[in-house]
Protein backbone atom coordinates (compact mmCIF):
# COMPACT_ATOMS: atom_id res chain seq x y z
CA UNK A 1 0.00 0.00 0.00
CA UNK A 2 2.75 2.37 1.03
CA UNK A 3 4.84 1.57 -2.02
CA UNK A 4 1.88 2.04 -4.35
CA UNK A 5 1.16 5.42 -2.81
CA UNK A 6 4.81 6.31 -3.16
CA UNK A 7 4.75 5.21 -6.77
CA UNK A 8 1.83 7.51 -7.49
CA UNK A 9 3.52 10.44 -5.82
CA UNK A 10 6.75 9.84 -7.63
CA UNK A 11 4.98 9.50 -10.97
CA UNK A 12 3.08 12.69 -10.23
CA UNK A 13 6.31 14.47 -9.35
CA UNK A 14 8.08 13.29 -12.48
CA UNK A 15 5.05 14.22 -14.59
CA UNK A 16 5.00 17.70 -13.03
CA UNK A 17 8.68 18.16 -13.79
CA UNK A 18 8.18 17.07 -17.37
CA UNK A 19 5.24 19.45 -17.79
CA UNK A 20 7.17 22.40 -16.31
CA UNK A 21 10.26 21.59 -18.38
CA UNK A 22 8.26 21.23 -21.59
CA UNK A 23 6.37 24.47 -20.90
CA UNK A 24 9.55 26.42 -20.32
CA UNK A 25 11.09 24.95 -23.45
CA UNK A 26 8.12 25.90 -25.57
CA UNK A 27 8.19 29.43 -24.14
CA UNK A 28 11.89 29.65 -24.82
CA UNK A 29 11.49 28.43 -28.36
CA UNK A 30 8.81 31.02 -29.03
CA UNK A 31 11.11 33.80 -27.85
CA UNK A 32 14.24 32.83 -29.74
CA UNK A 33 15.67 35.66 -31.77
CA UNK A 34 16.42 35.47 -35.41
CA UNK A 35 19.90 36.30 -36.63
CA UNK A 36 19.44 39.25 -38.90
CA UNK A 37 22.03 39.92 -41.54
CA UNK A 38 23.50 43.38 -41.74
CA UNK A 39 24.65 45.34 -44.69
CA UNK A 40 27.13 48.18 -44.33
CA UNK A 41 30.35 49.90 -45.15
CA UNK A 42 33.18 48.18 -43.36
CA UNK A 43 34.13 44.69 -44.37
CA UNK A 44 36.80 42.54 -42.75
CA UNK A 45 37.79 38.93 -43.29
CA UNK A 46 39.02 36.60 -40.55
CA UNK A 47 41.57 33.77 -40.66
CA UNK A 48 38.87 31.30 -41.69
CA UNK A 49 37.96 33.46 -44.68
CA UNK A 50 34.63 34.55 -43.21
CA UNK A 51 33.53 38.07 -44.08
CA UNK A 52 31.98 40.48 -41.60
CA UNK A 53 30.31 43.74 -42.51
CA UNK A 54 29.65 46.70 -40.20
CA UNK A 55 27.89 50.01 -40.79
CA UNK A 56 30.58 52.01 -38.95
CA UNK A 57 33.90 51.38 -37.22
CA UNK A 58 33.19 49.35 -34.10
CA UNK A 59 33.46 51.02 -30.71
CA UNK A 60 32.72 48.11 -28.36
CA UNK A 61 35.14 45.19 -28.57
CA UNK A 62 35.72 42.12 -26.42
CA UNK A 63 39.13 40.56 -26.98
CA UNK A 64 39.85 36.94 -26.08
CA UNK A 65 43.19 37.26 -27.85
CA UNK A 66 46.14 38.92 -26.06
CA UNK A 67 47.81 39.80 -29.38
CA UNK A 68 44.70 41.59 -30.63
CA UNK A 69 44.52 43.51 -27.35
CA UNK A 70 48.12 44.65 -27.75
CA UNK A 71 47.53 45.70 -31.34
CA UNK A 72 44.34 47.59 -30.44
CA UNK A 73 46.35 49.53 -27.87
CA UNK A 74 49.05 50.40 -30.38
CA UNK A 75 46.44 51.48 -32.92
CA UNK A 76 44.93 53.92 -30.43
CA UNK A 77 41.72 51.86 -30.20
CA UNK A 78 42.18 50.62 -26.67
CA UNK A 79 39.33 52.81 -25.43
CA UNK A 80 37.00 50.60 -27.44
CA UNK A 81 38.00 47.50 -25.48
CA UNK A 82 35.06 46.75 -23.16
CA UNK A 83 36.20 43.24 -22.19
CA UNK A 84 39.61 41.55 -22.03
CA UNK A 85 41.00 38.15 -21.18
CA UNK A 86 43.13 36.74 -18.42
CA UNK A 87 46.23 36.44 -20.61
CA UNK A 88 46.31 40.07 -21.70
CA UNK A 89 49.74 41.38 -20.75
CA UNK A 90 50.15 44.50 -22.84
CA UNK A 91 49.35 47.21 -22.04
CA UNK A 92 49.73 46.66 -18.30
CA UNK A 93 47.04 47.59 -15.76
CA UNK A 94 44.10 46.56 -17.94
CA UNK A 95 40.86 48.03 -16.61
CA UNK A 96 38.38 46.24 -18.88
CA UNK A 97 36.74 43.27 -17.14
CA UNK A 98 38.20 39.84 -17.77
CA UNK A 99 35.66 37.67 -19.60
CA UNK A 100 37.72 34.50 -19.90
CA UNK A 101 40.57 33.05 -21.87
CA UNK A 102 41.20 30.93 -24.94
CA UNK A 103 39.34 27.97 -23.49
CA UNK A 104 36.57 29.17 -21.26
CA UNK A 105 34.53 32.36 -21.49
CA UNK A 106 31.85 34.02 -19.41
CA UNK A 107 28.91 34.42 -21.77
CA UNK A 108 26.76 36.39 -19.35
CA UNK A 109 29.49 38.96 -18.93
CA UNK A 110 29.99 39.17 -22.69
CA UNK A 111 26.29 39.80 -23.27
CA UNK A 112 26.27 42.30 -20.42
CA UNK A 113 29.08 44.28 -22.09
CA UNK A 114 27.08 44.52 -25.35
CA UNK A 115 30.09 44.26 -27.66
CA UNK A 116 29.74 44.74 -31.40
CA UNK A 117 32.44 42.17 -32.00
CA UNK A 118 34.41 39.49 -30.13
CA UNK A 119 37.99 38.75 -31.17
CA UNK A 120 39.40 35.27 -30.68
CA UNK A 121 42.51 33.28 -31.47
CA UNK A 122 42.97 29.74 -32.75
CA UNK A 123 43.80 27.43 -35.60
CA UNK A 124 40.16 26.39 -35.95
CA UNK A 125 36.84 27.74 -34.79
CA UNK A 126 36.54 27.06 -31.04
CA UNK A 127 33.19 25.86 -29.74
CA UNK A 128 32.75 29.08 -27.76
CA UNK A 129 33.31 31.03 -30.98
CA UNK A 130 30.46 29.19 -32.63
CA UNK A 131 28.31 29.81 -29.58
CA UNK A 132 29.06 33.54 -29.49
CA UNK A 133 28.41 33.85 -33.20
CA UNK A 134 25.38 31.63 -33.58
CA UNK A 135 23.64 31.82 -30.23
CA UNK A 136 24.55 35.24 -28.86
CA UNK A 137 24.49 36.71 -32.40
CA UNK A 138 27.70 38.65 -31.84
CA UNK A 139 30.23 38.48 -34.69
CA UNK A 140 33.17 36.33 -33.56
CA UNK A 141 36.29 37.14 -35.56
CA UNK A 142 39.04 34.54 -35.41
CA UNK A 143 42.69 35.26 -36.06
CA UNK A 144 45.68 33.00 -36.18
CA UNK A 145 48.87 34.75 -37.28
CA UNK A 146 51.55 32.14 -37.93
CA UNK A 147 54.09 34.47 -39.54
CA UNK A 148 55.02 38.14 -39.77
CA UNK A 149 52.91 38.77 -42.87
CA UNK A 150 49.88 37.47 -41.04
CA UNK A 151 50.66 39.75 -38.08
CA UNK A 152 50.57 42.66 -40.51
CA UNK A 153 47.29 41.39 -41.93
CA UNK A 154 45.82 41.20 -38.43
CA UNK A 155 47.00 44.73 -37.69
CA UNK A 156 45.43 45.98 -40.91
CA UNK A 157 42.18 44.16 -40.19
CA UNK A 158 41.94 45.66 -36.70
CA UNK A 159 42.76 49.07 -38.15
CA UNK A 160 39.89 48.79 -40.63
CA UNK A 161 37.57 47.47 -37.93
CA UNK A 162 38.24 50.40 -35.59
CA UNK A 163 38.74 53.15 -38.16
CA UNK A 164 42.48 53.46 -37.44
CA UNK A 165 43.82 52.14 -40.69
CA UNK A 166 46.44 54.90 -41.04
CA UNK A 167 47.98 53.83 -37.73
CA UNK A 168 47.91 50.22 -38.89
CA UNK A 169 49.89 51.23 -41.97
CA UNK A 170 52.42 53.07 -39.79
CA UNK A 171 52.90 50.00 -37.59
CA UNK A 172 53.25 47.63 -40.55
CA UNK A 173 55.78 49.91 -42.24
CA UNK A 174 57.73 50.10 -38.98
CA UNK A 175 57.77 46.28 -38.74
CA UNK A 176 58.89 45.83 -42.35
CA UNK A 177 61.60 48.47 -42.07
CA UNK A 178 63.08 46.97 -38.91
CA UNK A 179 62.86 43.36 -40.07
CA UNK A 180 64.62 44.35 -43.30
CA UNK A 181 67.32 46.01 -41.24
CA UNK A 182 67.71 42.86 -39.14
CA UNK A 183 68.07 40.72 -42.27
CA UNK A 184 70.72 43.08 -43.65
CA UNK A 185 72.71 43.02 -40.44
CA UNK A 186 72.50 39.24 -40.19
CA UNK A 187 73.78 38.85 -43.74
CA UNK A 188 76.98 40.57 -42.60
CA UNK A 189 77.65 38.07 -39.83
CA UNK A 190 80.23 35.34 -40.32
CA UNK A 191 78.93 32.64 -37.98
CA UNK A 192 75.56 32.16 -39.63
CA UNK A 193 73.83 28.79 -39.90
CA UNK A 194 74.29 27.66 -36.31
CA UNK A 195 71.94 24.93 -35.14
CA UNK A 196 69.41 25.81 -32.48
CA UNK A 197 67.04 23.96 -30.19
CA UNK A 198 64.07 25.71 -28.58
CA UNK A 199 63.18 24.10 -25.26
CA UNK A 200 59.51 25.02 -24.99
CA UNK A 201 58.37 22.92 -22.04
CA UNK A 202 59.55 20.07 -19.87
CA UNK A 203 56.05 18.87 -18.98
CA UNK A 204 55.73 15.22 -20.05
CA UNK A 205 58.75 15.27 -22.33
CA UNK A 206 61.06 17.62 -24.18
CA UNK A 207 58.66 19.90 -26.04
CA UNK A 208 59.77 22.08 -28.90
CA UNK A 209 58.38 23.97 -31.88
CA UNK A 210 58.84 22.56 -35.35
CA UNK A 211 59.57 23.94 -38.77
CA UNK A 212 56.19 25.49 -39.61
CA UNK A 213 55.67 27.40 -36.40
CA UNK A 214 55.76 31.02 -35.53
CA UNK A 215 58.91 30.58 -33.43
CA UNK A 216 60.69 28.97 -36.36
CA UNK A 217 60.36 32.20 -38.29
CA UNK A 218 62.62 33.91 -35.75
CA UNK A 219 65.24 31.31 -36.55
CA UNK A 220 64.81 31.77 -40.31
CA UNK A 221 65.32 35.53 -40.09
CA UNK A 222 68.38 35.07 -37.89
CA UNK A 223 69.78 32.38 -40.24
CA UNK A 224 69.69 29.66 -37.61
CA UNK A 225 68.94 26.00 -38.28
CA UNK A 226 66.18 24.53 -36.14
CA UNK A 227 67.09 20.92 -35.29
CA UNK A 228 63.37 20.13 -34.93
CA UNK A 229 62.40 19.36 -38.52
CA UNK A 230 58.83 18.15 -38.12
CA UNK A 231 55.80 20.43 -38.23
CA UNK A 232 53.91 21.68 -35.21
CA UNK A 233 54.66 21.54 -31.50
CA UNK A 234 55.80 18.13 -30.27
CA UNK A 235 58.16 16.20 -28.02
CA UNK A 236 61.57 15.15 -29.29
CA UNK A 237 63.67 12.22 -28.18
CA UNK A 238 66.72 12.73 -26.03
CA UNK A 239 68.67 10.91 -28.73
CA UNK A 240 67.89 13.66 -31.24
CA UNK A 241 69.33 16.26 -28.87
CA UNK A 242 72.43 14.15 -28.31
CA UNK A 243 72.99 13.37 -31.99
CA UNK A 244 72.27 16.87 -33.33
CA UNK A 245 74.16 18.55 -30.48
CA UNK A 246 72.72 22.05 -31.11
CA UNK A 247 75.07 25.04 -31.05
CA UNK A 248 72.42 27.12 -29.30
CA UNK A 249 69.72 26.24 -26.80
CA UNK A 250 66.89 28.69 -26.33
CA UNK A 251 65.02 28.19 -23.06
CA UNK A 252 61.44 29.22 -22.61
CA UNK A 253 60.86 31.63 -19.72
CA UNK A 254 59.40 28.82 -17.60
CA UNK A 255 62.01 26.12 -18.29
CA UNK A 256 64.69 26.32 -15.58
CA UNK A 257 68.37 26.31 -16.52
CA UNK A 258 68.88 23.24 -14.30
CA UNK A 259 66.93 21.19 -16.88
CA UNK A 260 69.79 21.46 -19.37
CA UNK A 261 72.59 20.62 -16.95
CA UNK A 262 71.89 16.88 -17.27
CA UNK A 263 71.87 14.45 -20.21
CA UNK A 264 71.12 14.78 -23.08
CA UNK A 265 71.77 18.52 -22.95
CA UNK A 266 74.97 18.66 -20.90
CA UNK A 267 77.16 17.28 -23.69
CA UNK A 268 75.77 19.47 -26.47
CA UNK A 269 77.84 22.13 -28.21
CA UNK A 270 75.71 24.81 -26.60
CA UNK A 271 76.61 23.60 -23.12
CA UNK A 272 80.27 22.70 -23.71
CA UNK A 273 81.26 25.86 -25.58
CA UNK A 274 82.79 28.71 -23.67
CA UNK A 275 80.87 30.78 -22.95
CA UNK A 276 77.82 28.55 -23.01
CA UNK A 277 75.22 29.39 -25.62
CA UNK A 278 72.10 28.83 -23.56
CA UNK A 279 69.72 31.77 -23.61
CA UNK A 280 66.64 32.06 -21.44
CA UNK A 281 63.83 34.07 -23.01
CA UNK A 282 63.46 37.27 -20.99
CA UNK A 283 59.69 37.59 -21.40
CA UNK A 284 57.38 35.05 -22.97
CA UNK A 285 54.86 37.62 -24.11
CA UNK A 286 57.30 39.11 -26.63
CA UNK A 287 58.05 35.69 -28.14
CA UNK A 288 54.77 33.85 -27.99
CA UNK A 289 52.23 36.58 -28.71
CA UNK A 290 52.07 37.22 -32.45
CA UNK A 291 51.92 41.01 -32.58
CA UNK A 292 54.23 43.86 -33.65
CA UNK A 293 56.38 43.45 -30.49
CA UNK A 294 58.05 40.40 -32.06
CA UNK A 295 60.49 42.93 -33.56
CA UNK A 296 61.92 43.44 -30.08
CA UNK A 297 62.07 39.68 -29.51
CA UNK A 298 64.12 39.26 -32.68
CA UNK A 299 66.41 42.10 -31.69
CA UNK A 300 67.05 40.45 -28.33
CA UNK A 301 67.68 37.01 -29.85
CA UNK A 302 70.00 38.45 -32.53
CA UNK A 303 72.07 40.19 -29.86
CA UNK A 304 72.42 36.91 -27.94
CA UNK A 305 73.31 34.79 -30.95
CA UNK A 306 75.56 37.32 -32.69
CA UNK A 307 77.46 39.15 -29.97
CA UNK A 308 78.65 42.53 -31.17
CA UNK A 309 75.92 42.97 -33.77
CA UNK A 310 74.76 46.56 -34.07
CA UNK A 311 70.97 46.46 -34.18
CA UNK A 312 68.92 49.49 -33.41
CA UNK A 313 65.16 49.39 -33.66
CA UNK A 314 63.68 52.65 -34.88
CA UNK A 315 61.35 54.69 -32.72
CA UNK A 316 57.86 53.18 -32.58
CA UNK A 317 55.73 55.39 -34.86
CA UNK A 318 52.90 55.96 -32.40
CA UNK A 319 53.26 57.67 -29.06
CA UNK A 320 51.98 55.35 -26.33
CA UNK A 321 51.61 55.79 -22.59
CA UNK A 322 53.10 52.33 -22.05
CA UNK A 323 56.02 51.88 -24.46
CA UNK A 324 55.98 48.61 -26.41
CA UNK A 325 59.68 47.84 -26.02
CA UNK A 326 60.96 45.66 -23.16
CA UNK A 327 61.72 47.53 -19.97
CA UNK A 328 65.35 46.99 -18.99
Amino acid sequence: MSEKLMDKKMWALVAAIIVVTSALISVGVVTQKSNSASAGKITVTDSLGRTFTFQHPVTRIVSLDPSATAILYALGSYRYLVGGNQFDCYPPHETAPNVGDSYSVNYEEILNLSPQVVLGYGTSMPTYGTYINDTLHIPFILDNPENFTQIENLTTMLGILTGTQSNATLINNWMQENLANVRNQISLQTNRGQSVFYYLSACGGIWTSGNDTFINQYFSILDLKNIANSPGYYTVSAELIASESPDIILLDQYVPYSDVTAAPFNQTSAMTSSPQKVYAIFNDSFFNEPDFRVVYAIQWLAEQVYPGIQLSISQFPISLQYPPWPSS
Binding site: G28, K33, Y107, L111, N112, S114, T135, L136
Partner: peptide, 15 residues
Protein backbone atom coordinates in the same frame (compact mmCIF):
# COMPACT_ATOMS: atom_id res chain seq x y z
CA UNK B 1 20.64 42.70 -22.39
CA UNK B 2 18.92 41.41 -19.24
CA UNK B 3 16.32 39.69 -21.40
CA UNK B 4 18.98 37.98 -23.52
CA UNK B 5 20.98 36.87 -20.49
CA UNK B 6 17.93 35.21 -18.95
CA UNK B 7 16.36 33.79 -22.12
CA UNK B 8 19.37 32.89 -24.23
CA UNK B 9 21.74 31.81 -21.46
CA UNK B 10 20.18 31.00 -18.12
CA UNK B 11 16.98 29.25 -19.15
CA UNK B 12 18.57 26.69 -21.49
CA UNK B 13 21.40 26.09 -19.00
CA UNK B 14 18.99 25.50 -16.14
CA UNK B 15 16.69 23.26 -18.13
Amino acid sequence: VQYEIVVLLREPQIL
